[in-house]
Design a binder for these strands. Structure first.
Length: 500
DNA sequence: ACATTTCAACGTCACGAAAC
DNA sequence: GTTTCGTGACGTTGAAATGT
């Protein structure tokens, strides 16, 4: 099984399902150690009858043939693109089938469909019980949620969480999740825990995670409280701590890279290209790249020399708020990379070492007239403040369970807001939350420092435009509609404006 | 989410007893 | 008299737990 969240969930669906209908079935599972995918030939035990590969393995043609020669059947349950259908394995892959229109269904989804087919064959209905795992797998694998079938199963899965480990993870995060099990909360508070275990956990952590997904009824001694607790509870807590550990490691990495950027004066470039060979853990490259691009407000390429070769590989991040909205396309158009694969603003790449300097020059030339670190927002709605009311907020909030990958919560610009100085304040324990009221709606901006406040709000009345998102603040049993500011602009400073 | 508090592990240093 | 070894106090560090 693959070592990513979709790999874990798809394998768990398969094993849990098979065990539920064939209680005496003998299943052995094997974890992939690194980022490799598919079957490892040497790890297939000699007495094996059947190998099933969830979430990968479509293109392991030679391995399929080798296993076939040993008299072992292979079933591939995959959603990754590949050249052709293997002749020596049974391949279930939505990308290969012209008959099956849904190309945005992850490994967990394909495994579910496979179980559904067994259901039909046996005249039973057991696969649906595992839709919670289907949901987590598809959310984790960033499937396009505009795909109606995928979204249907995801929402259905989240309606009833059956898996004891997902339950334990939700319990661990109950403070943040606040009882709302929707796509956003799974994506922000559950999936990152699984990913943290995969990135910075050790072998034992990963095995415990899989056991937990497999509904193991093992208990673990919890020394601090002197009790035995279910492995699911212990693992959920462990993953939470691993997430903290990951954050610390990430921040340490960011510090090192920042130092390098300064020493090498890399900010003179429009796109940051930083060599991180030997100074940054491989598993953290993407996370660190995120932080760096956010901090310096520009796209970043963290590169690393591939062992014993002249090729550099690495992790790229676009600056989403910036002028370049599709960094991958931008780099592909330069035509110098061996490949760029992944999402628009988060992807991996490889390039010949000798081309790096040239690429840097090309980028600087292409962007020579562009101010790279300026924020530019693509908003979904522009609403003049006099048309903005609480009804808008309620209407958007009603849809909160739909927000997901490619179905993002709308980003809204409110224009022509006029506020008097005395209606603007810094609140909170740390005095770092900006708040003002306009036409009876609270506008909030988090993390706004006192010195910034003094510098910017220097005058009597301010005309501004803001971009941000609608939300409803639930506090003390009350629901208060509010607008969370992401960024704002002051257009004009005037004398005080009287309402009457 | 993030800050703060608590806990556990580790290294090191000093001291003294035992070994040489 | 010198070296080695073990022990325990102490401080440092990072992990884990808790609190809001």
């Amino acid at each position: 099984m693959d070592s990513d969240a979709d790999g874990y969930t798809s394998s768990a669906i398969l094993i849990n399902y098979l065990k539920s209908i064939f209680p005496n079935i003998n299943i052995k599972w094997e974890l992939q150690e690194g980022k490799e995918h598919g079957i490892i030939l040497d790890k297939v035990p000699s007495e094996t009858n059947l190998v099933i590969v969830p979430d990968s393995g479509s293109n392991q043609y030679e391995i399929h043939s080798a296993l076939k020669k040993r008299g072992i059947d292979v079933i591939v349950l995959d959603h990754h693109e590949c050249e052709k259908e293997s002749e020596d394995a049974i391949v279930v892959n939505n990308q290969l089938s012209p008959e099956y229109p849904n190309k945005n269904f992850s490994g967990a989804g394909i495994v579910y469909k496979f179980c559904k087919a067994i259901d039909e064959y046996l005249g039973i209905n057991k696969a649906d019980y595992f839709l919670d795992l289907v949901a987590v797998g598809n959310i984790a694998d960033m499937m396009d949620m505009r795909e109606l079938e995928t979204r249907y199963y995801v929402l259905k899965g989240l309606e009833s969480i059956n898996n004891s480990f997902i339950k334990a993870l939700l319990k661990q995060q109950e403070y943040s999740i606040n009882g709302v099990v929707n796509i956003t909360n799974i994506a922000f508070y559950i999936v990152p825990l699984i990913n943290a275990a995969i990135r910075v956990g050790d072998e034992e952590d990963k095995i415990n995670m899989m056991k937990s997904f497999l509904e193991s009824n093992e208990t673990v001694y919890y020394k601090k409280k002197d009790i035995d607790e279910p492995i699911q509870t212990a693992t959920a807590r462990r993953l939470y701590n691993l997430k903290n550990k990951q954050n610390r490691l990430r921040d340490k990495g960011v510090e090192l890279i920042e130092k390098r950027i300064e020493e090498k004066r890399l900010l003179l470039n429009k796109v940051l290209i930083v060599n991180v060979t030997d100074i940054l853990d491989k598993n953290l490259t993407g996370l660190v790249a995120n932080q760096i691009s956010r901090k310096y407000k520009r796209p970043v390429l963290l590169i690393r020399q591939k062992e014993k070769s002249t090729i550099f590989g690495g992790s790229a991040r676009g600056y989403e708020k910036g002028v370049l909205k599709d960094f991958k396309q931008f780099l592909q158009d330069i035509n110098q990379f061996i490949f760029c694969e992944g999402h628009k603003n988060a992807f991996g790449f490889e390039i010949e070492a000798e081309k790096l300097i040239e690429v840097n020059d090309i980028i600087n030339d292409l962007l020579k007239d562009v101010e790279i670190d300026v924020d530019e927002y693509e908003v979904d709605f522009i609403i003049p403040s006099e048309q903005f009311d609480t009804q808008v907020i309620y209407n958007i909030h009603k849809l909160k369970d739909l927000w997901s990958n490619n179905v993002e919560e709308p980003l809204i610009a409110i224009t022509k807001i006029s506020v008097n100085k005395e209606d603007i304040q810094l609140i909170g324990k740390n005095k770092n939350t900006l708040k003002f009221k306009n036409r009876n709606i609270d506008f909030i901006k988090f993390n706004y420092s006192e010195e910034e406040f003094k510098k910017v709000f220097n005058g009597e009345c301010f005309v501004m435009e803001v971009v941000g998102r609608c939300s409803i603040n639930q506090w003390d049993g009350k629901e208060i509609p509010q607008f969370i500011i992401e960024d704002f602009n002051i257009l004009e400073i005037k004398d005080k404006e009287w309402i009457f």
